[in-house]
Amino acid sequence: MTASGWSANQFSALLGAYRSELGLTTASTTALFGIYVLGLIPGLLLGGPLADRRGRRPVVFLALGTSALATCLLMIGPVAAVFLWPGRFLTGIGAGALLAAGGAWIKELSSPPHGTAPNPGAAARRSGLFLSAGFATGGLAAALIAQWAPHPMVIAYVPHLIISAIAALSAARAPETSPAHAHAAPSAPAPVAPGERRASGSDFRRLVVPVAPWVFIAPAVAFATLPGLVDSDVKGWETVYAGVITAVTPGAGIIVAPFARSLAARHRIATGAIGLAAIALGLLISALAAAQAQPVIALIASVALGAGYGLCVAYGLTEVAALAPAHQLARLTSSFWTVAYLGFLAPYVITLFTGVFSPPTILTAAAVLALITLATLAYRGTRQAHAR
């Protein structure tokens, strides 16, 4: 999971370098940022069901290999920029399959002893924690290397290859929790264990899907949009500044993890609701930062956006782990990540609208949408609680 987060975010901190060193336009770099999602979707949609049929281990190792190949293609980018496109696309495929299969594997490896009530939230938070750790360290490491190392857009990717090798060696010792059963006859659904809820497509659509895109809208705005709006005051340090934001944002998500745990214990939807409120606040602060071109205010915005990201990803993964029976866990996990990662298209959408509206106006409108989503979640969650 850490390798997956690292691979996704190492590119984000280099967007400014690609614009200045390779002469890529803002539209091109945000499109490269977003094409990652086009790879994620098949990676998630195919990786989850494949992991349910063939087992967690083979899918995880195939995804790790794909991710490493993608990084090698990105390293060729300074010589032939055309390789950046398949590199980012394959990064998405590898990360998507890792999220689907790896998230299910972690949940199963985290299962308590027989006879003990399961705690789906604990495993979900563990997945989110290590994913966020990869997000936080990958972008910052790439930025620091790119600022001072020779051949920055090549050397910056080397750490991911090392992390991937370490991840493969570590995972090789983990037991397979879902052996291949491609030709097994369908079996009746397992009984619901104490503390678990039967999977409900309606619950997933009503309570998880509306929140899911905001999981990555928040960090995507922080990574890909904010630095370009305020970096006029950090001339010469644009790459380091972008790297700091890519560390601060998921770092805030890690810090709020204990808070997410206490919220989830009090009320089912509280984690998601407060996460959406934090994202709305972060977007409003982002609008202020863009209006005044203030890097410090943008950093404050990234903290709020990161906290919202952490709370929303904890909410979504906890709900999925609680709703899904074992034979559908990877499938439902992949569905959640598919919807969540659509949020990575937000910077490209913002770029398209910038020709008509100012960035502060667009960011303020996004904050209003987050608040509307919050109101919808609160209404549906309250009705669901009364129905129970």
Rank of each mutant, 00 (worst) to 15 (best):
V244D: 03
A27P: 05
A117S: 12
G282E: 04
I163S: 04
F216C: 03
K107Q: 11
K235Y: 07
I145N: 11
L140Q: 05
S335R: 14
T382W: 08
G355H: 12
V320D: 04
L64Y: 01
I350S: 08
A81L: 15
H114N: 03
G343R: 12
L226Y: 10
L46R: 04
L229C: 08
A17C: 03
Q147P: 03
G77Q: 09
A101L: 08
A27M: 06
A340R: 11
V296I: 12
A17H: 02
A326R: 14
S262A: 08
T29D: 04
V244W: 07
L161D: 02
T239M: 08
R19Y: 05
P325D: 14
T364C: 11
C312Y: 07
G39M: 11
A31H: 00
F204D: 15
A180Q: 08
A167C: 04
L69I: 14
A136Q: 05
I155V: 13
F204W: 07
R57A: 02
V221P: 10
A117F: 02
S110K: 09
I362G: 03
G251T: 00
A124L: 09
S7D: 07
T225F: 09
P219V: 00
V368N: 08
I300K: 06
G96F: 09
I166Q: 03
A27W: 01
S302F: 03
A367E: 08
L299P: 02
F216N: 05
A51E: 01
L317F: 15
T382G: 08
A224T: 00
G310C: 13
A156T: 00
L74R: 00
P258Q: 08
G134L: 04
A330L: 14
G23A: 11
L345I: 15
M153Y: 09
V320I: 13
A185M: 10
F11H: 03
I41V: 12
L38F: 13
R261Q: 13
F357E: 10
T373G: 10
S178Y: 14
A247R: 01
R266W: 15
F259E: 02
A257F: 01
W337G: 05
L98E: 00
P194R: 10
L46Y: 04
A141F: 06
A13Y: 01
L45E: 09
A180T: 08
G306L: 01
R57L: 03
L15E: 09
G128W: 02
A31I: 00
P152C: 05
A180K: 06
A304D: 03
L40E: 14
A165V: 12
I274A: 14
I217F: 09
A123I: 07
A264D: 04
R266Q: 13
A146I: 01
A80Q: 03
E238Q: 13
I279E: 11
V234Q: 12
S20V: 06
V208C: 14
Y309C: 11
V154M: 12
P58F: 06
G253F: 15
T361W: 03
R206K: 12
S335H: 13
L284E: 10
G282A: 07
I217T: 12
P227E: 01
A171P: 06
I93S: 04
L129V: 06
A80F: 09
L40M: 15
L144Q: 02
I274W: 15
A340F: 11
A80W: 06
A165W: 13
P213Q: 09
L263T: 00
A142D: 08
A270I: 13
F33G: 00
A247M: 13
S286C: 04
Y315Q: 04
A375D: 05
R19V: 05
